[in-house]
């Protein structure tokens, strides 16, 4: 068995600043994951459908626009609709402290701000997937 963890990295919403998302995508690749990068301006529908087709274990959402409280629940809802409720959802970007708990309560497995170490993200992923961190 050559099971590989597959991660979708997407930028929902309208802001076009994808440097952070690309850096995370690369860092996760260097941690041994298969990262599917979908680029900017993705709708929740597009993200959920891509997650389904690629059969990913993790969906990472990069949001800098401040629209996370609108976008994240819609992505989670779409994933559920498609039968992908097991997928680990992570959020990265500029997220105010007061929103973090709300996002976690929605089912997000981790929220990461600027300066997060890759190892933290990897640990969250491995824990959420019930694997031993490498």
């Amino acid at each position: 068995m050559d099971r590989k963890v597959r991660v979708l990295v997407a930028k929902p919403g309208l802001d076009g600043h994808d440097r952070g998302a690309k850096i995370i995508a690369r860092a996760l690749r260097d941690s041994g994951y298969e990262v599917i990068y979908t680029g900017i301006r993705q709708t929740p529908d597009m993200i959920a459908e891509a997650a389904l087709q690629e059969d990913v274990d993790v969906v990472g959402l990069s949001i800098l626009s401040g629209a996370h409280m609108a976008l994240v629940p819609r992505v989670i809802e779409k994933l559920k609709e498609l039968g992908m409720e097991d997928v680990v959802v992570l959020v990265g970007g500029i997220i105010p402290d007061e929103d973090v708990q709300t996002l976690l309560d929605m089912g997000v497995a981790g929220v990461f701000g600027p300066g997060t170490l890759t190892s933290e993200i990897v640990e969250t992923i491995e824990n959420a997937l019930g694997r031993q961190p490498a």
Binding site: E34, V35, T38, Q53
Partner: peptide
């Protein structure tokens, strides 16, 4: 990547016109 065993699959970025079309199925492979 021969070093980490990971992969960055980025072809979907250029195929966004096809998103949402049930007549299309895209799968990235490493």
């Amino acid at each position: 990547s021969p070093f980490s065993g990971g992969a960055l699959l980025g072809d979907r970025v250029r195929m966004r016109d096809l998103a949402g079309d049930p007549g299309v199925f895209i799968r990235s492979m490493a």
